[in-house]
Simulated scan of single mutants.
Amino acid sequence: MSNNLNSNARIISLVGQYVYDHSEQQISLDALSAYTGYSKFHFNRLFFAATGFQLGEFIQRQKLEKALHLIKQGNENIIDVAISVGYDSASSFSRAFKKNFSVTPSDIIRGKLPRNERAGSLPPKKRHKEKILTPILKTRPTQTVYGLYGKGFDKQSFSTVAGKLYARLATIAEPLNYFQLQPIGVAVDNPWVKEQTESVFFAGFSEGLSAHKDKLDVFQWQAGVWACFKHIGPHDTMWQTISQVYSQWVLPNNIKLKDQQIVQLYLNNPTNTEPDLIETELYFAIEEK
């Protein structure tokens, strides 16, 4: 438990310091991940696992806390304070400030007290039942997977767009059974980072599509050591298992993840399986020691 708390405190502290030092700038994910030493692709999910907050929410909160401190120190020019923490207008700054602190910058100047000053002390927004997760480490060769790319993340999953993509693939695949086709899914984009409707998902089959490869998209499943975890349940709760992998295994054990997407292997057919019994293997690429 202490390792988990220490790792959580470390990532919160590093992000908070970086945002404070660069509060007048647009925070770059590349720069932030490099500064903290965490994988860029996984950084947002790691941060959510540690704090219960999306990274963008926390960055905004940290900037506003710096603004609050500046105003309390006697800086009464609201537009100057707004610019110093990355806002380009006093009105947008004041709206964000009031939403977070329940008072306006002018109220602070007049001596009114804010609500909840420290972002790091705010309670996590989401909790889910914890369970013990143990990975199986697998060394894999590079695998070329044929399939289709599509866009759309909705109701906590890519299920809708994935269903459409797999239906199209099934019409052109060789007549193999579900297990032989071995469906593979990849969230190419982290839907918590960009516009969710524009987030890209790849759907493919391990077998049955090579004869049609000229008209299909390709995903390269890279060679290396992969940690395999099993998710049991509907796809719209998969984010909970992924978050637990980060909070229970990656952060406390200081696991170094590669900047590669999480690969999903679907072990049973969701069209004839009860949602609570659906099994999915989740693969995380790790740095070899």
Rank of each mutant, 00 (worst) to 15 (best):
S7M: 14
H212L: 06
P270Q: 09
S23W: 01
S199P: 04
A9V: 06
V103K: 07
A187F: 02
Y266D: 00
I108Q: 02
A203D: 03
Y18R: 00
Q261C: 12
N272E: 15
I255K: 07
A170M: 10
I278E: 13
N254K: 14
K129F: 06
Q156W: 07
S39P: 10
P114K: 01
S102V: 10
N116W: 04
L277H: 14
Q25C: 07
Q54K: 05
R127E: 08
P124F: 11
F158I: 12
A187S: 13
N269L: 10
A49E: 01
G147H: 10
Q143H: 12
Q196R: 13
A223R: 12
A203Q: 03
L55E: 05
G233V: 05
N268C: 15
S159R: 05
T144W: 05
V161K: 06
N44R: 10
I184Q: 02
Y20H: 14
K112V: 09
L122Y: 08
L64T: 01
F179I: 13
L64K: 00
V85S: 01
P191H: 05
D236W: 08
Q25A: 09
S13C: 05
P105S: 09
T160W: 05
Y166A: 09
A167K: 09
P124R: 13
S23Y: 02
N253Q: 14
E198G: 02
A223S: 15
L209D: 06
N253H: 13
I278D: 04
G120P: 00
K230F: 04
I71N: 00
I71R: 00
Q25I: 04
P135K: 11
L113F: 08
L64S: 03
L169V: 08
P275T: 08
A31F: 12
V186L: 04
D154T: 10
I262M: 12
K40P: 05
Q156F: 11
H42R: 03
K125D: 06
Y20R: 15
I242S: 14
S247M: 09
V263H: 02
L251E: 04
A162R: 03
L113C: 10
G56I: 03
I262N: 06
V218C: 12
G74C: 10
F202S: 00
H42F: 01
R10H: 11
N253G: 02
D107R: 07
V81N: 00
I109T: 04
P123M: 08
P252F: 10
E117A: 11
T273W: 04
K230E: 14
V245I: 12
R115C: 13
F205W: 11
T36Y: 02
V145E: 03
H22L: 02
R127K: 06
H235Y: 15
L122A: 13
A96R: 04
A187M: 02
K63P: 03
M238R: 07
F179T: 11
S247L: 14
E198N: 09
T134G: 01
D30S: 11
A82T: 01
V200G: 02
S13T: 14
N4D: 10
A49L: 05
G152W: 01
F219N: 08
K155M: 12
W192A: 14
V145L: 13
F284A: 00
I27V: 13
Y266I: 08
D107I: 06
E76C: 12
E130Y: 11
N177E: 08
N272Q: 14
